[in-house]
């Protein structure tokens, strides 16, 4: 009986991590579903939904984790059903970097009904004048107007743009 697990791997970035890890999984008939694989700073992170026979994924990946110095975490028996949830709002945020931007913005927007589907952030600018940039795709559960209204409470110096997404179905 096949089941789904979620594998998380993190380690120092180097060329070939994805190819080596996925070849081992493929060789043992592990099928990939949705995945996120991204370099963050000097680290590379992978989260892989995997459909597989009853087996010890930790043991399967032990060798490669040691040779590439990756940290491994396996969540077994995660849900098999994963219907895509379409975002209906896109939010971009940026400002001079300081601690607490994500906490402040997401708390205010969560109160106004924002369900985050995808959020990523980056630090740009120069070392002495860093800029913090965040993009969010989510669902405006109380409507986009509620988010726009709530955004007025966000501190000065943080620029925020809220754009409705009207998905084309054709």
């Amino acid at each position: 009986m096949k089941k789904w697990s979620l594998i998380t791997l993190v380690g120092a970035d180097q060329a070939g991590i994805v190819a080596q890890v996925t070849q081992i999984l493929a060789a043992d008939d592990c099928e990939l579903g949705e995945t996120s694989m991204v370099r963050m700073g000097g680290s590379f992170s992978m989260m892989l939904r995997v459909r597989h026979d009853d087996m010890d994924l930790g043991a399967l990946l032990k060798g490669i984790c040691e040779s590439l110095n990756l940290h491994l975490h396996v969540d077994e028996d995660v849900a098999s059903n994963c219907e895509e949830t379409d975002p209906d709002v896109n939010i971009t945020v940026y400002g001079a970097d300081r601690s607490g931007i994500v906490a402040e913005v997401t708390a205010i927007l969560a109160d106004a009904g924002l369900n985050i589907i995808d959020l990523e952030t980056a630090v740009a600018g120069t070392a002495d004048k860093p800029i913090y940039i965040m993009t969010i795709e989510g669902q405006a559960l109380q409507g986009v107007d509620a988010l726009t209204e709530a955004a007025k409470k966000i501190s000065k110096g943080i620029e925020l743009n809220i754009v409705p997404i009207q998905t084309l179905r054709a």
């Binding site: 895509e84 379409d86 009207q166 179905r169």
Partner: peptide
């Protein structure tokens, strides 16, 4: 930029 889905590609936008 906009989000699209298609009758010929179910369950994905």
């Amino acid at each position: 930029k906009g989000r699209e889905g298609c009758l010929s590609v179910p369950d994905y936008t």
